[in-house]
Amino acid sequence: MTLNYIVFAASALLFGGSAVVALAWAMRKGQLENFQRGATSIFDADEPIGRVTDSFPGQKPKPAGGATKRS
């Protein structure tokens, strides 16, 4: 039974503690500011906002080099 109490205490500490750490980190790094920038962080120059990227465009015969260029 004592083991059960240890499990309770340990996971409560682990859980609450790490959540607070995560949150403190997020605020220190400014993650909770400037939401517009956050929304656009998944776009890049090769797949910019405004381009539909729903399907892999296949491997067009292309010059050497790993990058896939989209037409």
Partner: peptide, 25 residues
């Protein structure tokens, strides 16, 4: 967004307490 800090800490603590409520008590 300066109140966010207070709000979110509150949220976290409440979340941890759910575990105490549902399992421990």
């Amino acid at each position: 967004m300066n109140h966010a800090a207070t709000i979110f800490v509150g949220v976290m603590l409440t979340f941890a307490s759910a575990w105490l409520g549902l399992v421990f008590l």
